[in-house]
Amino acid sequence: MSVRSSAGRVRCPVCARPQAQCLCSLIPRLWPPTQLLVIQHPDEASHALNTARLLVPGLVNAHLLITESLQEHPAWMRRLQDPRWRNELLFPGEQAQVLLPAAVDLRPRRLVLLDGTWRKARKLVYLNPVLQSMAQVCLPAGLVSRYRLRKVPQAGALSTIEAGAEALSVLHPGFDKHALLAPFEALIEGQIRAMGLARYQQNYGAASDPAVE
């Protein structure tokens, strides 16, 4: 069933794109051993270029939770404190350790991603002590975002789908991150084409872009 946006446009209920621009045919169904939980700040849910809506459907064992307070979701509070699981927060805090495959710990692994601006992500951590209590991990340095329609707030900043894809490829060598990123790449390229190369270069300072010809 399709949904209608506040502007009256009919959108796909899965990828949230206008029906004529639906990306669902590019979304895979991958099943890595690590479970992902994406906690999305409510302000991000209506963003036209939100990538969590492309990440979660591409993974059989991923979940999207739209909330500012986990207190409203006691079942998830219990899961995130369950010692039978290795729960980790992907967040570049001061105590964050670089993400590595599990060498000895054989517990099932759950990785929590925060979807929102840096300010909103920090607010989610501040408002939820359960997130503060979790082990924090970060991605290896040197990664470059392909999210060419946003000016990144700091070096190494990635979109939510890129962060999820990179994390899973670190944890599970051989994971097909390119399949997971396919709808994201199509989204960005489509938006640049609709914008026009001249306007794109003016707004984002791109001297050239191989994806736009």
Results as ranks from 00 to 15, higher is better:
residue 113 L to Y: 01
residue 13 P to W: 01
residue 146 R to D: 14
residue 105 D to W: 07
residue 87 N to M: 09
residue 209 D to I: 11
residue 152 V to M: 13
residue 93 G to H: 00
residue 159 S to H: 05
residue 38 V to C: 12
residue 187 L to A: 09
residue 140 P to T: 06
residue 100 L to T: 13
residue 148 R to A: 13
residue 1 M to D: 12
residue 47 H to N: 14
residue 5 S to G: 11
residue 156 G to A: 01
residue 53 R to V: 15
residue 158 L to K: 00
residue 38 V to D: 02
residue 94 E to I: 08
residue 84 R to L: 14
residue 108 P to F: 06
residue 199 R to D: 12
residue 60 V to M: 14
residue 43 D to M: 12
residue 208 S to V: 08
residue 161 I to R: 00
residue 208 S to T: 13
residue 24 C to Q: 03
residue 58 G to L: 08
residue 58 G to N: 09
residue 137 V to R: 01
residue 212 V to Q: 11
residue 63 H to M: 09
residue 201 Q to P: 04
residue 64 L to A: 08
residue 189 E to H: 15
residue 205 G to T: 13
residue 30 L to E: 05
residue 29 R to N: 12
residue 129 P to D: 07
residue 146 R to L: 10
residue 161 I to Y: 09
residue 149 L to C: 07
residue 46 S to P: 00
residue 24 C to W: 01
residue 44 E to W: 02
residue 184 F to K: 06
residue 174 G to V: 11
residue 168 L to A: 05
residue 15 C to I: 01
residue 36 L to G: 02
residue 157 A to R: 03
residue 111 L to A: 04
residue 159 S to R: 04
residue 51 T to D: 01
residue 149 L to D: 02
residue 138 C to R: 13
residue 156 G to E: 08
residue 7 A to F: 07
residue 203 N to A: 15
residue 100 L to G: 00
residue 28 P to W: 02
residue 168 L to T: 11
residue 16 A to M: 03
residue 4 R to M: 13
residue 7 A to D: 15
residue 193 R to H: 15
residue 137 V to T: 04
residue 108 P to Y: 05
residue 143 L to H: 02
residue 8 G to R: 08
residue 87 N to A: 12
residue 181 L to Y: 05
residue 84 R to V: 14
residue 16 A to Q: 14
residue 125 V to Y: 04
residue 125 V to I: 02
residue 157 A to M: 09
residue 86 R to I: 08
residue 184 F to T: 06
residue 60 V to P: 02
residue 103 A to I: 09
residue 106 L to W: 00
residue 117 T to R: 07
residue 96 A to H: 05
residue 35 Q to Y: 02
residue 143 L to N: 01
residue 137 V to F: 05
residue 168 L to Y: 05
residue 98 V to Y: 05
residue 174 G to P: 12
residue 154 Q to E: 13
residue 51 T to W: 03
residue 181 L to R: 08
residue 118 W to E: 06
residue 35 Q to S: 13
residue 30 L to T: 05
residue 48 A to Y: 03
residue 31 W to P: 00
residue 8 G to N: 10
residue 165 A to D: 03
residue 136 Q to D: 10
residue 112 V to K: 03
residue 32 P to A: 06
residue 22 C to P: 07
residue 104 V to N: 11
residue 130 V to G: 03
residue 92 P to C: 00
residue 52 A to I: 10
residue 185 E to L: 10
residue 119 R to C: 00
residue 118 W to M: 01
residue 211 A to I: 12
residue 123 K to I: 00
residue 15 C to K: 08
residue 47 H to V: 15
residue 198 A to N: 13
residue 180 L to Q: 08
residue 194 A to R: 15
residue 69 S to Q: 14
residue 59 L to H: 06
residue 142 G to F: 00
residue 185 E to S: 14
residue 102 A to G: 09
residue 53 R to H: 15
residue 137 V to C: 01
residue 99 L to G: 05
residue 186 A to W: 04
residue 196 G to P: 11
residue 158 L to E: 02
residue 21 Q to M: 10
residue 28 P to L: 02
residue 36 L to E: 04
residue 47 H to T: 14
residue 22 C to K: 10
residue 68 E to Y: 06
residue 105 D to M: 11
residue 142 G to E: 02
residue 50 N to Y: 06
residue 82 D to V: 06
residue 131 L to G: 03
residue 187 L to W: 12
residue 78 R to V: 12
residue 11 R to Y: 00
residue 188 I to K: 05
residue 72 E to V: 10
residue 134 M to H: 05
residue 168 L to D: 10
residue 6 S to H: 09
residue 62 A to S: 09
residue 54 L to V: 09
residue 31 W to M: 09
residue 12 C to D: 04
